[in-house]
């Protein structure tokens, strides 16, 4: 029996017929298994959702408690039977609560890794390699030019600039779930203990991370009493990247635009976005990590989803792995 008889892409997402469920469906379905809380993977409106407790909490924060009719949490490493298959969740190292989903059927195993990274992250559990026959990998940064530098070194760039331009506010664009908290945690780790100002859209998620034991130190909303621009001189302000193009950013004195993202590796890309201080911080694997992971797991087949499938497919061919791009739609390339 072929692997894709029991797990294959459909317009609604990756579907498993013998278990009658979808993984990270992009449309409302009867039964959804969800890898992590980013909006393009976790959507509201399913009848029943199985996910880690933290992912369920994050979905409730974003969409309200009623985002699905039934929810069920599952701990990492626990086997659960659904129809004719059994599934288990394993840490993916992407954001708080993120998981790879292993699907077992008739003695074979497929692992859908969702989004994942191998770099150390103080805000979530590290990726755990799971032996399998088919490994489904993301390919967001699957080009040899993406090689993420040490994250501590990137945070140091930010701190150096704050010391160099103490009269300017440093606006750090960071995705509201995961990246923002990681940036803040790394700043704390580097010894920065000033109040960090955050955009209103991040408050709930930062509070949630703190409640889960991730220490983010003193945070305050980046609100402004009229006429007191000077309040933010020398401050670090974290907000969603979209906010910095918005009128919201006008409250800060002569701001320096920083952006924490894997895309910042390419200078032209930073320049086009008007970013002055690119911070190459990604919650995805870089090229070397993708290759190391495939070699480590050494699956019979590699299935490649969202991103630059062609480069990773090429590498698999050169290195004698059976590879196939899965054309899954609905996942945002830019989501970082």
């Amino acid at each position: 029996m072929r692997f894709d008889d029991w797990l294959h892409p459909t317009p609604k997402g990756l579907y498993c017929p013998p278990g009658d469920f979808y993984i990270d469906p992009v449309k409302p379905v009867a039964r959804a298994l969800i890898t992590h809380g980013h909006a393009d993977h976790a959507r509201p409106g399913h009848t029943s959702v199985l996910a880690s407790q933290q992912t369920l909490d994050i979905m409730a924060l974003r969409y309200g408690e009623g985002h699905a009719e039934h929810t069920q949490d599952i701990a990492y490493g626990v086997q659960q039977t659904i129809g004719d298959v059994s599934v288990s969740f394993h840490p993916a190292g992407h954001v708080l609560g993120s998981a790879q989903i292993a699907v077992n059927y008739k003695g074979k195993r497929i692992v859908a890794s969702g989004d994942y990274k191998r770099a150390d992250d103080p805000t979530c559990l590290s990726f755990e390699p799971v032996p399998c026959d088919v490994f489904i990998t993301e390919a967001t940064f699957a080009l040899p030019v993406f090689r993420h530098p040490d994250d501590r070194q990137e945070i140091q760039k930010l701190l150096t600039s704050v010391a160099q331009f103490p009269e300017r506010a440093h606006l750090v664009g960071a995705y509201a779930l995961g990246k923002a908290q990681r940036v803040i945690a790394l700043l704390r780790e580097a010894g920065y203990d000033e109040t960090i100002f955050i955009h209103g859209a991040m408050q709930k998620l930062c509070d949630y991370y703190q409640s889960q034991g991730v220490d983010l130190g003193p945070l305050a909303p980046a609100t402004l009493e009229k006429g007191k621009k000077g309040n933010f001189a020398g401050a670090i302000v974290v907000g969603p990247p979209s906010a910095f193009a918005d009128k919201w950013a006008r409250r800060f004195p002569d701001p320096i635009a920083a952006f924490a993202s894997g895309w910042m590796q390419v200078r032209q890309r930073a320049k086009q976005r008007g970013v002055e201080l690119p911070l190459i911080l990604s919650d995805h694997c870089d090229w070397d990590e993708l290759l190391a992971t495939i070699r480590e797991i050494d699956p019979e087949e590699v299935w490649i989803t969202h991103g630059r499938e062609d480069a990773l497919t090429r590498w698999c061919e050169l290195n004698n792995y059976t590879a196939r791009p899965l054309s899954l739609v609905g996942y945002e390339e830019e989501a970082e």
């Binding site: 910095f244 193009a245 918005d246 009128k247 919201w248 950013a249 006008r250 002569d254 701001p255 320096i256 635009a257 008007g274 002055e276």
Partner: peptide
Amino acid sequence: RGHGKRSS
């Protein structure tokens, strides 16, 4: 969009 003071 501009830069610096004019970045927004």
